[in-house]
Design a protein around this nucleic acid. Structure first.
Lengths: 118, 118
DNA sequence: ATAATATACTTTGTTATGCAAGATACTAAA
DNA sequence: TTTAGTATCTTGCATAACAAAGTATATTAT
């Protein structure tokens, strides 16, 4: 997914597909985090995500320049890759916030129509 | 996507992928409609969808027993396939409404965290 | 008549991506 | 030195969104 594509026409269509990416940016906007912590946070929010999904996604976002990472030693076990938002990532997050709000409104309006007629 | 899968564990994960399906059920809950009309309604809501996406999706939902259709003559042009919700489709729509609300709350809570810390 | 245009449905091939499953690697404790 | 726990990464499969082309029907213009 190209960041420039998101910004133009089909924001909501891209939002539809990008909710997981959006959630990751939201989590990282709060705190730098490593993959397992992100998975746990998503699980706590009842959004099941597995490693085979998350790792490639983080790599993709990093390659797009949305994220960076640093290695940190763990109190127990192998070192952890802590991801953090870049400026570009923060900029995209701001746009995705707007797209998300639009999507919510769109679905509200589709719902409202039904309520009016029932 | 299996209707029984949706109802159990990973509602939000399925919701993420199923927003377009959700929108179609929402539109059809309002009025029976044929494909071109559905596309226009989604375009009006700035959710770009093309024929190559919509037609297979409608067929899928019909095969799952969520939709039925009837043929209707058009004032101009070839006959139209009007889709309508089945009872099963309405039941799923009710569940997806709940899942959607949960997803909105989840993202609100991820957002709230950030606001509290800034 | 018939060619052109508009409308509508369908199919094909490509690409992307979510996931299950397994592989690799580091650390600590038994 | 083997087991258990934590963590990252990879592979192979299935699904699905899309672009693009194809098929079919009806109307209008020539």
């Amino acid at each position: 997914m190209n960041i420039d594509t998101i910004n133009t026409d089909n924001v909501k269509a891209q939002m539809r597909k990008g909710i997981l990416e959006y959630c990751i940016l939201l989590i990282l906007a709060n705190n730098d985090a490593y993959a397992t912590a992100i998975i746990n946070e998503l699980k706590a929010a009842k959004m099941i995500v597995v490693e085979g999904t998350l790792y490639p996604l983080l790599t993709r976002q990093k390659n797009q320049g949305l994220l960076n990472y640093r290695w940190e030693e763990s109190p127990q076990g192998p070192p952890r890759k802590y991801y953090m938002l870049t400026d570009k990532g923060r900029a995209l997050l701001t746009e995705l916030d707007a797209s998300w709000n639009e999507l919510v409104k769109t679905i509200q309006s589709l719902n409202k129509k039904n309520n009016n007629l029932q």
